[in-house]
Design a protein around this nucleic acid. Sequence first.
DNA 1: GCAAGGTC
Length: 671
Amino acid sequence: MIRLFHRPRHASEARRALSRFASTMRVLCVAEKPSIAKAVASHLSGGEVQTHNTPEKYIKNYVFDYDFGRPWGKCQVTMTSVLGHITSAEFPPEYKKWEYPPPDRLFDAPVNVVVAADKKKVAENIEKQARHANALCIWTDCDREGEHIGYEICEAAKKGNRTLEIKRAKFSNIERAHIINASKNLINLDPKQVNAVASRIELDLRIGYAFTRFLTTNLRSLGGPFQNLLLSYGSCQFPTLGFVVDRYFRVRNFKPEPFWAIKVMHKREGIDVHFSWARHRLFDRAAVIVLYERCLAAKKAKVTKVQEKPTKKWKPLPLTTVELQKMATIFLHMTGQQAMEAAEALYNKGFISYPRTETDRFDPGMNLRALVQKQTQSHAWGTFAQNLVDGGFQQPRQGRNDDKAHPPIHPVTFAAPSVLNEQEKKIYEFVVRRFLACCSEDAKGVATDVDIIYGEESFYAHGVVVLERNYLEVYVYDKWTGSVQLPKFTVGETFEPTEALMTEGKTAPPNYLTEADLIALMDANGIGTDATMAEHIQKIQERDYVRTVPRTSRPDEADDVEGGRGRGDRGGRGGRRGRGAATNARGGVMDFIPTQLGVALIEGFDRMNFETSLGKPFLRKEMELKMKAICEGRTTKEVVLDESIQQYRHVYMQSQQKLSVLKAVGVLFWP
DNA sequence: GCAAGGTC
């Protein structure tokens, strides 16, 4: 057999091999993170690859030959990566002091973009490798931030070589065929997306620094507890605080209202059947008494409808970051931050896929069966996985979100429990059970509805019998409650109810926010990204704007919750009502409550600037819309920066004028 | 001492 390509064993051999391709293109490929560089290098090289260490311990350079097709043809390739952003935006040294110049000067101070201190080695590796290359191919994630990181890579590479031809690969997962296809269909970087991110970076810097200094220095003069506080403002941390404060006041200002209802019970075949009132409840006691007495006078109830029909409980959607964090805070005794740390550790050990994703649909081309197969060796869920392999496998449901950068979170290889710490074990187990649930069948049952007329009032009973648990067997976090079997009823029959009661209750306030609620609100309002939401929540605790306290039960209140939704709450995607923190068996639900300080800051801004209060989430949403407009070519970076800086400068000036209002509120809520 | 966004 003649081997056309083989790994050179000696340096001299390597040099001879190289000289044969003296006229070939040399292409430098750069990914956003080491794992992508490794995966892409492996696919493109077919395994014939030399691996070199770099001064940065996380980054390796992979050298191999590859044919990109037209126009580059066969190339010598070096594939490497960065570690996220390389550069950072900062103010010149003369703006470092807090006393002078005044904070509002930060709205028009120069902003320098420099290589971040901890990214020097990363940038140098790119620059050095670029010197030997004819072309640069960007392999960063295909999202907005990825586009900007791609631009940063270009700038670093140009320092080493001004004449590079620059291209970008467009890919949304790291399956071999998809990556090969991307390599043969290179496109250009999109300057619009780069500009959108550049605007975000500059505005967050200016606004964050200006208002942080404004708050800290001005309230310090109140003395007392404000003396040594750092009062930060950020476009994400403040709206997050705003949600907590808003819910706090909804709970505090809640006025309970009494209501009355009628409940009908009937015992048959040893089963107590509870018929609910079609009117649910009324807030008029006299009216309910009249209706109730008519029921009693009628003595007998008549069955008007009996319906049995097949029903399903749907298996969950493929796992996103937001959903992972919500589930971890509800079922795994973890904070969002802890969940992310464990998930990142699992990812870095190669056990699960990339944990920061908005995507809740698997690419149809992915070989999910092979991933299920890897779980058959588990003592806990191996049998379930084996059943899927043996024919039970079903393609997962497709959600509506696709970030075009990462697949849903899923297990990559089997991890024995002994190699994981406690937190990692819990997250790994959850990721696997969720994945197996996605690959199995919906739970199936039969639903029975019985309607009756009693007096002139309608009542109904609903029952479900679970026939096939299917995914519920492995996905222990879901329960199909209300699975009570109803006894036999026949349309037209009459019976005398065992019991008919008039009940009394009062509406209860909504609960304080749990971390899962808070994450859902941030998600729905576009506050932060999947990678940063947990950080913002941690930040407002560090700053002592909010605290968590164990939920105290409220046994005296009725079972009927009124409201329960915060400002701007439209329910996060994938969120389900009726599965809240309050109802699970975990024991200690933690509520988020603002401190006096947190309340004072939000109240202060609300009273100073009522048309554009910084505590409201819509300013962040506005920034999101403006970024989108830049991406779609409807506006430009320059216009957005100009408009936004003017707008925030106005809020700043107004805050300065009404400083006495802020201070008064500060004293009112003296921490 | 300050932001939010990547990633390790």
